[in-house]
Amino acid sequence: MSVVIPYQVEPHPVTGVTSGKLGIWLFLASEVMLFGALFSSYVLLRVGAAVENWPTGVEAGLNVPIGTANTLVLITSSITMVMAWASLKMDNLAAFRRYFGTTIALGLVFLVVKAFEYSDKFGHHIFPATGWPEAGDPSVFYGLYFTLTGLHALHVILGILVNLWLLFFGVALWKTDKERLTGRIEIAGLYWHFVDLVWIFLFPTLYLL
């Protein structure tokens, strides 16, 4: 006996969305609470520290131009993602492959740049455990910088892995069930945009303020 579970491809008549879409949004809601807790901790720790002991990104040696460039990389990857989905909607698989591949490549570029930033910090003997300033009553700025960007990078890596799977294996679904593939790309896109959205808050919080 085979079990057919409804609303995988066609939207539910009352909620108007597929199960997958509702599922990913619930997942994203929990992710909002995760990053929300991290930002809330940032606020609490910063409020608890003396004003002069909390560095701006520049004071802490973060490279603002590189950070800005990386932000633009991630934003660009978001539009290529949404274009990839739109290409499927317009029945153009070749364009989908181009855009989707570009999204993955841009994600990798973001990670490589991030890795260079990290190794530059390590080269200057700055680690998560390093306080700012070194002496006196230091703040945990570097700890937050590494933890928050590290966790974000983990999300980027996860997104890239999922997207790679979709690009090389998941895409086979195009032959049998176009709508289902389009739905899956939309879901992957929602996750990817969310990762972008987190960075939109992380960048000014850590680099500019």
């Binding site: 929990s30 992710e31 995760l34 990053f35 929300g36 680690f127 998560p128 945990v140 700890g143 590494f146």
Partner: peptide
């Protein structure tokens, strides 16, 4: 998720010395 965040922070405290 907030406990997840807290666990990550405490893990950093224990492993990375933050």
């Amino acid at each position: 998720p907030p406990l997840q965040a807290a666990a990550i922070f405490q893990l950093m405290d224990r492993l990375a010395g933050t």
